[in-house]
Design a protein around this nucleic acid. Sequence first.
DNA 1: TTGAAAGCGCTACCAC
DNA 2: GTGGTAGCGCTTTCAA
Lengths: 350, 350
Amino acid sequence: MALQRPQTKEKKIPDQTGIRQVAKRAGVGIGSVSRVFSGAAGVSDQMRARVLRAAEIVGYSPNMLAQALRRQKTQSVGFVVSDIANPLVSSIIHGAEAVLSAAGYSLLLTNSGGEPAVDARRIRLLQQRRVDGLILLPAVEDDPAMLAALGASGIPLVVIDRSLPDSIEARYVYSDHYTGVGQAARHLLELGHRSLGVIVGLDVRPSRERIRAVTDAYRERKMKPKFLVDAGPLSAEHGAATMKRWLSAPNPPTAVILGGNQLLVGALETIRSRNLRLGRDLSLVVCDDVPLGRLFDPPISTVMRDTDLMGQTAARFLLDAISQPEQAASIAVLPTWYVPRVSCGAPVTR
Amino acid sequence: MALQRPQTKEKKIPDQTGIRQVAKRAGVGIGSVSRVFSGAAGVSDQMRARVLRAAEIVGYSPNMLAQALRRQKTQSVGFVVSDIANPLVSSIIHGAEAVLSAAGYSLLLTNSGGEPAVDARRIRLLQQRRVDGLILLPAVEDDPAMLAALGASGIPLVVIDRSLPDSIEARYVYSDHYTGVGQAARHLLELGHRSLGVIVGLDVRPSRERIRAVTDAYRERKMKPKFLVDAGPLSAEHGAATMKRWLSAPNPPTAVILGGNQLLVGALETIRSRNLRLGRDLSLVVCDDVPLGRLFDPPISTVMRDTDLMGQTAARFLLDAISQPEQAASIAVLPTWYVPRVSCGAPVTR
DNA sequence: TTGAAAGCGCTACCAC
DNA sequence: GTGGTAGCGCTTTCAA
């Protein structure tokens, strides 16, 4: 009736070294071994030495799976993002991972590809894996399946750049898109532009904030906020298509704000193919830095932010939430700032 | 003597829904519930329905931790990289994650920051988490601690763009850096360049292959392979510093191959500050695509590769290794190709 | 301080 | 087909 070991195919597998092997080897109780390895108080030096030596010999190290099952704590957190390959996102992940692993947590990373349904599935999967907390950068803010999954579990939650309904208990890490884009819009209006174009993503917080920022910039100058808005995927293709559409229209915008760095490549392609000179024939601002942006000819005006810091902040929030679930949920708003460059100039007067 | 529940702070926590609650609710045996949820054969439709309904009511979903402990299989793999934030790396991760999650595996991602010692520690941590396999993109190829950790466990292993000693049983996913860089070097030599400069990273496979490729390109033309080599961090700062050094030397190279895309920003800065015109005063090739590379003025010659595919391939190799540990270890060599652009031109004759 | 024993939630064997 | 049961490797009481 012994448990049948899963087909140990006479491969090397170092003979499943468990706590009881160590206990037997050291001639002590199984509990003592546990105490030594979990650093519990009340273990004699002598015991510690014996156990450690025995463990050394048999090559033991604790099975975190069993620990997690018993302790009801996995020391792991799940991170669901919509696009790992986006440098912005990977920088956020980088920041979060650094903080988490320093705190002894492992990161379960999963990609939803921007599909709300996948977001929801991944969240449930991570819950089944009993992660201690969750960081989310979901595609949309109101997917019912996602909200249901989140609501059903009391797992600590940090959401990045998205705003979920109040019914979901979560902490938030926002970028202050309003300020950065506002600065950009004001700059463009001061230069004399009157018809701006703004490309944003789906109806998520950053998109709303950016539109609000441009609107308010117009209003500040007592101008009617009349500008073009395009909402779509923040991809190069979409950037190219939208620019093409706008530039072919009867009254094309004289300045465009791109709400995502992936749009830039596409937009520049269209601009190039039309032989327009940036900063003269058309002004351009991109949100989020692109490696060659400032070396480009002409250098591209950019709304910057510290994405690594966003990840760090999210991780810290999550660690707080895990250790003090009682504490009021909190919100961090991290700065963005506008760096004007030559891609923005006065519009051609005709 | 009941297990003391970890301080259920009268928060919501949905009352730890376990398999036996479902069994009781459905009035069936605990084993039947297990069978239903693990999709085992030999369960009557009636039983399945009863169990599923009961599970629905109490809101049950299997605890993967317990499953993993019992099955000796976590359905998770570890991925250790040196820099998540590098777009190249995150693209590899993207590819791997897609394949793994489609196969029902979760990804434990961890960053070593390029520190060999951290690589080794992370590997050990993942082993304690009992991952079913490991994908590695380590900083160096010969760190003793890393090799020891790897050797001590029989965990299936896939290594990307690094070549470990034969003593480690692993599968490999390589990029064919030799071909791409070879094409670039030949192009430059054909253009008339005689003194190339090559910037590579540490002594790892890609660096060696790139140097070998340039060497062979010289030899093909019966020329003595006399070119500058710089080995260092593949960072923008290092790119700038090396270019500065080379361009200040008595006989500066007339063409430079950058062995990593992060070098490009730095190199271009130096070039710009010296008022050199790419393709005329200096020719430049970068390994690995940079978003604005082809739109740059002038467009930058690039050695391309499909990093997403590398990740996919690594994941597939790992899944193979997990399901058939016996099978001979294998190697994949994925193509790289050179895309000549205006940044390469004939050297100025003087 | 230490050992024994119960049990975390599950799977897989056994007998019916 | 189905239920009972042992045990995955560990932590944490309780008694000594």
